[in-house]
Design a protein around this nucleic acid. Sequence first.
DNA 1: CCATCTTTGTGCACGCGTTCACAAAGACAT
DNA 2: ATGTCTTTGTGAACGCGTGCACAAAGATGG
Lengths: 254, 254
Amino acid sequence: MATGRTHRPATRSRGIPEATVARLPLYLRALTGLSERSVPTVSSEELAAAAGVNSAKLRKDFSYLGSYGTRGVGYDVEYLVYQISRELGLTQDWPVVIVGIGNLGAALANYGGFASRGFRVAALIDADPEMAGKQIAGITVQHSDDMERIISDNGVSIGVITTPPGVAQQVCDRLVAAGITSILNFAPTVLTVPDGVDVRKVDLSIELQILAFHEQRKAGEEAAATDGAGPVAAVRGESADKGPDGDVPAVMPA
Amino acid sequence: MATGRTHRPATRSRGIPEATVARLPLYLRALTGLSERSVPTVSSEELAAAAGVNSAKLRKDFSYLGSYGTRGVGYDVEYLVYQISRELGLTQDWPVVIVGIGNLGAALANYGGFASRGFRVAALIDADPEMAGKQIAGITVQHSDDMERIISDNGVSIGVITTPPGVAQQVCDRLVAAGITSILNFAPTVLTVPDGVDVRKVDLSIELQILAFHEQRKAGEEAAATDGAGPVAAVRGESADKGPDGDVPAVMPA
DNA sequence: CCATCTTTGTGCACGCGTTCACAAAGACAT
DNA sequence: ATGTCTTTGTGAACGCGTGCACAAAGATGG
Ligand SMILES: NC(=O)c1ccc[n+]([C@@H]2O[C@H](COP(=O)([O-])OP(=O)(O)OC[C@H]3O[C@@H](n4cnc5c(N)ncnc54)[C@H](O)[C@@H]3O)[C@@H](O)[C@H]2O)c1
Ligand SMILES: NC(=O)c1ccc[n+]([C@@H]2O[C@H](COP(=O)([O-])OP(=O)(O)OC[C@H]3O[C@@H](n4cnc5c(N)ncnc54)[C@H](O)[C@@H]3O)[C@@H](O)[C@H]2O)c1
């Protein structure tokens, strides 16, 4: 914690919009793909298509980082990869601890996509004595008792919670007390944290429920359409704000 | 840009804002907890606290569903649970298929939180012949060859993709061709789908990178504060997040 | 050096989402 | 019935994010 309530209205220059920050990893992924295929430069239009966003949005996003493009040509792929990596803080290695090594925690530990992005699984922690000592993805699971020491010794600031929801808040509290300032929470729980600590959540159930909502609406529309009633209603067609190349329109499997 | 046409502001009443839809599951979870403890009614203030949102926002969200509260008292828990469930389409059962039964797919299959929310894992599908026939969470893994039949026979409209990124698009195409109209994608790939198909993605790497960005900023601020001789103050107020929620949806429509 | 062509960077307008603040609605006591 | 008290439902203001449209910048060719 510490960080006293800085209610500053942003210092003007370094204020990158949150929405932009959330898209930078997307651009970075697309750029990495181009880099691997040795593509030297890319236009905003092409890159936007690869990232699945609007080209104007992409240009505006990049404008927050600086003027890294060349008019008439585009962006230098390697240079942009570096700039975005630096902006996201990926030029350094981030040690991460995963707490709760069950189905999900083990899957994450086994995931190779971590290291390739500058994240290193520094430790796996579980409260079950049976788990302690077991090897998962080449890493030995350690017991919760040593949580504070593990975090301190490894200088970890990012923690992933994959414990049952009932204990997520207390695990969170302990992580924060031990020095963690960023948490990725997979447990379906609202975590309360002190100021200065970031929490992001991934909730599978919520995602499915959102899909179900739209699915139901689609079914309703369809019923209203085939049911004989006029095509009057036709609730808005928003739905998936599809990719850049709005290709292949209507298939409409009515 | 979206679909281009359809500038309709929703057919009047049934136009629930996307941001509201994304919060309904959150309210539902909080309400379910209250219901289990036999709490009869709850005020917007209390429920908002439990869901980790602003009470005004919650009231406005509910106002889109109708006037289900009683002034001076609050909301009837059971009634609200029913109304939100109905709105989200959870009064019916949604069969779901998971494609790609590796680390992550298996973890999801083992997850019990599905059924409790009205989702039923109808089938597990994998391209590996070795996997076919194996039992996971009491469900027999089936081979990709039968994908179309499986989806058709079970009337599945929601699919979860947990295959390697390289094959995600083709798996997606096949799912869509087979009748799937909602997809939850865990592979780090931008999926292109025809109009009328919803895609939501969950990308762990992106989440971590966003955390890293804020983490780096926090470290920079701290250094500038304690070091005193910071070259460029680059401070940017906007401490972590506002409320205890830390909004910003983890996924975005593709 | 000038003309043309391509693509960036951004001013501007618009729409969505959030938050405030308060009148209206109902419960409850007298 | 009447008054008081609590809490909802929402009008309105505001801020953020998005997308359009275009001038400026630079590359390229003559
Ligand atoms: N498995 C999934 O696909 C999935 C999907 C969405 C959400 N989730 C959520 O993720 C979390 C984990 O799910 P899971 O299926 O892996 O559960 P799990 O039961 O398989 O694993 C939980 C692990 O946490 C450990 N644990 C329990 N209390 C602990 C504590 N106090 N400190 C440290 N470790 C502790 C347990 O020993 C166990 O190993 C749950 O909250 C679940 O709701 C899981
Ligand atoms: N494991 C994680 O924690 C994690 C985290 C974030 C993202 N992801 C992403 O999720 C996906 C799956 O990760 P994983 O660790 O489970 O990988 P994995 O290799 O363990 O599993 C992939 C599975 O997909 C199957 N498969 C391959 N091609 C297929 C096809 N055409 N049709 C059907 N099935 C096919 C494979 O047989 C395998 O069983 C990957 O895209 C990965 O990037 C995983």
